[in-house]
Design a protein around this nucleic acid. Sequence first.
DNA 1: CTGAAAGCGCTTACAG
DNA 2: CTGAAAGCGCTTACAG
Lengths: 350, 350
Amino acid sequence: MTAPTRRITLKDLARELGVSTATVSNAFNRPDQLSPALRERILGEASRLGYHGPDAKARSLRTGRSRIIAVILAESLTYSLNDAVASEFLSGVAEVLDAQGHTLLLLSSRQTQGQIPGSASMADGFIVYGLMPSPSLLGRLPAQASLVSVDFDIAGRPTVHVDNEAACLAIARHALRTPPRRPAVVNLRLTAEPCNGRITPAHALLGAEQTITRSRLTGFHRALAEHGIDPAGVPMWNIEENTFEVCAPVIETILDRPDDERPDLLLCMSDRIALTAVTLAEQRGLRIPEDLRITGFDGIAEGQYRAPRLTTVRQDSTEKGRTAARIILGLAPAEPSLLPTELVIGANCP
Amino acid sequence: MTAPTRRITLKDLARELGVSTATVSNAFNRPDQLSPALRERILGEASRLGYHGPDAKARSLRTGRSRIIAVILAESLTYSLNDAVASEFLSGVAEVLDAQGHTLLLLSSRQTQGQIPGSASMADGFIVYGLMPSPSLLGRLPAQASLVSVDFDIAGRPTVHVDNEAACLAIARHALRTPPRRPAVVNLRLTAEPCNGRITPAHALLGAEQTITRSRLTGFHRALAEHGIDPAGVPMWNIEENTFEVCAPVIETILDRPDDERPDLLLCMSDRIALTAVTLAEQRGLRIPEDLRITGFDGIAEGQYRAPRLTTVRQDSTEKGRTAARIILGLAPAEPSLLPTELVIGANCP
DNA sequence: CTGAAAGCGCTTACAG
DNA sequence: CTGAAAGCGCTTACAG
């Protein structure tokens, strides 16, 4: 009770013990630099005095490294944290960081302030997920920090990808083995301008370097062409946000068409879209798969634990996260990484 | 291209401009401390030289504040990020932090290393979610940091709670209006020792200060007693983790009992448990609600967007997160906060 | 409105 | 194996 109203520092501890600050620092950081006996004495005294080890702020300034890795999410944190695919990705990142004594800072490129808070620059590395951030945001990141992009490319930086086109080719080929009369595609963020509804020729579409949806669509179109169906004649809808709330009205538009205009095959860009379609179709008394077949993308748990089980492409989002984290920590080579996908055939599109 | 191989600092910028470092600092942090013209000149030169503002590490050492808030989760990050309730909570926290220019650091009290990494001590405040962390972990947090606990109490610290007992009393009263023949309770982490299965008298139970499950159970028991049912005669099961994978085997045990022993009312401690029960009951051809009625807790979206819609208690996890964040940032008084819940009556227990 | 100077708490060559 | 000293990049009274 020597009234330590002030927080105790390494210097205090050194003075108390009659050793230099270097030795105390070594006791915590480089055990081999001092005798075990002395180290014991220092650590013992430290815990007696309530000193929990070198201050992280000072250490990070001195060493230049914070042991913090930031993930920059394309969507808002609110959306991302509630999206199964993004959550799995994050949990993969967290798993590896955790095992390496690193810590996860969550950022969104849709930050309220319009820009990443300055405190973000504390991070040693950045994992950018889902969408090309604005050039100004990218420019603000510390030049020496490492960077890896996921699901899109940043010139000269390592990337983690899934082969979207091949995966969509495979699932569409499977679906088309039973010839549909009226196939249709439900896209996710394909249009240059926001659009929740039918895509018309007037809509400009994003390029393959801006959205993975484009590659997925290419896969669908290749399969359609193989089966003698002109892709240009296949109607497309678009959805801006991968949530039930945003999907539902668009899906309703599709399902409420007259029987002879309603699609009998819905190629969806995500499981969330597909699940919404299943739910709304069931509510309307449509039989799945007799009246309507539906395919998804992602392989989220919710689609596999319900009846009818979803036909989809499983991508291992967790492994994506692990891979990105390994690259950022230098545990894996800083080169483009392409992860496999798996066709999962469920009861709603056998 | 004056070969700035080294990162540019505030000092460099000051020298370049012929002003003091204080003035450059003020240009970024206290616009009112210098003339607009000078400030313009400084900011202009800064962006020309690629200086993006004061270094966060140095600033945090100097000011003692990092603008980082840490959330310490009871479960692993992998689990928490994939759990709907925890995700919603985090998104509420993120929303408020974001609006205040703060940033979210994710920690788990189940960190692989067995303890929180040192970098965590950089945070200005800690939100502890879901479970009392070990005293040693609590002791390692910087003494001057602010702390708020959610769903449990830490002596002398502000807390955010939901009235679990009242909510469970209400939902059980609703369910018991149709008298069950064989009611049962499925708990979540109620036993002192891990238990996935039937709870026997041999099991020690956690206290109300250790787990919210205890308060929920008290609510159920009060309602049962009101209806003349001896709570001691109501069988209980327990589940350790709120996932389909862990719930399913326990639920199967329950549903696979002979017809005259199988419960016809399942009071579940979470929607995840309830949804697992619905799925497995449907697979067995049990009619809901005729053969089996099921209630949940939480009000997650997945339970509301499927048929039969879940009967549950909705708690606003997002608001819980917002409240905790407001308290930690000093935007709300540092006092206990009790959030309301809402009884939601669905088709699986009308 | 502007500047000189101290110091936040630590780590790291370096010398002994 | 141990210590004296420099300095990471910044902010903040304080004096002018």
